[in-house]
Simulated assay, not measured.
Amino acid sequence: MTETRHTKVLIIGSGPAGYTAGVYASRAMLEPILVQGIEPGGQLTTTTEVENWPGDTEVQGPDLMIRMEAHARAMGCEIIGDIITSLDMQSRPFKAQSDSGTVYTADAVILATGARAKWLGLPSEEAFKGFGVSACATCDGFFYRGQEIVVVGGGNTAVEEALFLTNFASKVTLIHRRDELRSEKILQDRLFKNPKIEPLWFHELDEVVGTDMPKGVEGVRARNVKTGEITEIPCKGVFIAIGHAPANELVKDTLETHMGGYVVTKPDSTATSIPGIFAAGDLTDHKYRQAVTSAGMGCMAALEAERWLAEQDLDSGKDTTEPLGYGAPVDAAE
């Protein structure tokens, strides 16, 4: 039999935004339920050294997320290892279907589903995913000890992954379609000083080449974006580090989005285009995309959810199945 559980606040996602929302909602005595999603802890579980988290000169990403989860639990947040597969926002209480079969109903929802790695979309990239092509250096770098590796990208993610991979690789080639990096200057300085890293400017990945028996990467073909000339680079691993896209599958057809799918919130707020639905973290943030800003938005979402719930007369006997108005303009989400 399908189990149905009700909560005042349902938090979907378990990165810095989700766990911080859990802390604040618990302290507000809202007894929140947090459903972790497909990647408990979010993107920080796939990073190593974090040097910009206030209070920690250096902390391992997975360790930080374990501490955040423990903090939320200690405050009283119920944390469940499950995945929300659909979210009905047309009527109240909101209804979320989980992969386990449990249905969660909630008076308010905080969306903190974050973002995930982007891919280039090349057929050869897809063919060798898991067999030499990866988007997570901390997950897979260990397998390439003493090997030559290629990293694709030019932002913080690419530079961080290239630097990390020098712990294992004999050589790291960084392929970038421009002649300058978009990453923080301190990261660029480290990269240019590292003798194991060789940038390949004005190039883009054209094809991953390898073998089928056994299946594995043997090299890549990189195309010069100005001349079209192909350069062949031998390598055993290819790491795609071109950024992230918001994990908006639950809400992309119902909530207002912009900038490639990021959920729109009211100015200086986490309120979305549907009253009672709040969004925080990388799902909404196309500009900063930092753990500390995500945590701040998680705090905001919990405080705003508490305030919004206090304004609702949920026990008045009025029809709680009243449609809320899909796709309402953000300014009208009062």
Score class of each variant (00 low, 15 high):
I66N: 03
E31L: 11
A106D: 10
G141M: 05
E204M: 08
S124C: 04
A222R: 07
V152H: 02
K171C: 03
A70V: 08
T227S: 12
D253P: 01
E31K: 14
G261Q: 06
L187D: 05
K252Y: 11
F192H: 10
V172A: 08
G18W: 00
V151F: 12
Q290T: 05
E125H: 07
T272K: 05
G228E: 05
T166D: 01
V103R: 01
F239A: 15
D206Y: 14
I175E: 06
G132L: 02
S91A: 15
K171S: 10
N194Y: 05
T7F: 04
G281R: 03
A21Y: 11
A117C: 07
L34T: 01
D88Y: 01
H71N: 05
T321H: 14
A25R: 03
A280E: 10
I186C: 01
A241I: 14
E69K: 12
A74G: 13
R307F: 00
A222W: 04
V264S: 13
R307T: 13
D179Q: 11
R92K: 15
G298W: 01
V217P: 09
I233S: 12
G317H: 08
V133A: 01
A158F: 11
G132F: 03
A245R: 14
T45I: 06
D56P: 00
G155I: 13
F143G: 03
S316P: 06
A117M: 11
G260C: 04
T254E: 13
R182T: 15
I79D: 00
C136R: 10
P214H: 07
T321R: 14
T113K: 04
A96W: 01
N248R: 03
L200A: 13
S91H: 13
C235D: 02
L250H: 00
V225F: 09
E78R: 14
F164I: 13
A135Q: 10
F142N: 02
S183P: 13
T166R: 05
